[in-house]
Design a protein around this nucleic acid. Structure first.
Lengths: 159, 159
DNA sequence: GAAGATTGACTGTTCAATCTTT
DNA sequence: AAAGATTGAACAGTCAATCTTC
């Protein structure tokens, strides 16, 4: 009941979690900027498009895969289009829709960013023992895919 | 070498991590809004001020405790001041400085928010076994406090 | 000039409104 | 009217410049 340390276990865990997230994110942001002149958001768009069959995806699918809001995705694509990393193409079968395509320039940027991105993540978790890492992966994976969310509606990747 | 699953272990872990963070954060945001009409950022300012001796802190200390940039803190305090949650008072001993004080209204809001905040966090991690939770706490705590950051400059709490 | 803090401009995110095609 | 998507205004966060007091 000591007022000074009346912080629950979950609260401390969550604080650490948030700090860790912030720190790794900052490192990723710096590294991607240095290696390829892109942001983490750019990187996620580009790699998601890369994984798609023809290097193109509908805004709806792209947003769902990333767990982003429609408008955020649209704004992001607009900015990336202006920089030549992606392009919008009209959809032939459905006149309402468009395709977001990765350009050559986008491919180059993604390629330039890959190694550094992986390295930052590797370094960020290198302090863990093999056993610790496995538990960590299991726990986080279970929380994300299990029925643990309080009011979870979103379902995807990233920020 | 299968292209489809050429995602490193760390990358998968990180993706899950980010999704989890996003999900819990969203739940917290909704709950605080509903219970007390405040944001997570508001909540962190208020609770940090509550923990301080006289319910007041210098912007510098407050920012350091939270791990926020000076300007972010200043903007946030300005917004909260406009809503009557905190107040700025001139510092008597050092004319350069100010004190950020929590108001009665701020105290009420914090009080209204506490229970829901704790509940969301408890629920968010309730799926873990006792053992899992301990490892999770240990691992995250070690990563945050150990020498694991790639290029870590920041040091504090929260987003 | 350095410390404490604020300001303004710019980038990114969200929310609600809109537009077009089905 | 619903689906697919974009737009614009409002809000939050970052960066560099500024202002005052020490």
């Amino acid at each position: 009941m000591a007022a000074a340390s009346a912080v629950s276990t979950e609260a401390r865990l969550w604080r650490d979690f948030v700090v860790l997230r912030q720190r790794v994110d900052r490192a990723l942001e710096q590294r991607l900027q240095r290696d390829a002149g892109i942001s983490v958001a750019d990187f996620e768009i580009l790699t998601t498009l890369c994984r798609a069959d023809d290097g193109q995806l509908r805004p709806g699918s792209l947003g769902e895969l990333l767990g982003w809001e429609k408008s955020r995705l649209s704004h992001q694509v607009t900015r990336m289009e202006a920089r030549g990393l992606v392009a919008r193409r009209d959809c032939p079968t459905d006149q309402r829709g468009t395709w977001v395509t990765i350009t050559d320039s986008g491919h180059s940027a993604a390629a330039a960013a890959m190694a550094g991105h992986a390295e930052v993540l590797k370094d960020s978790f290198s302090a863990l023992s093999g056993e610790e890492r496995i538990t960590f992966e299991t726990v986080v994976g279970d929380l994300v895919r299990g029925t643990s969310g309080t009011e979870c509606t979103g379902s995807g990747i990233s920020d």
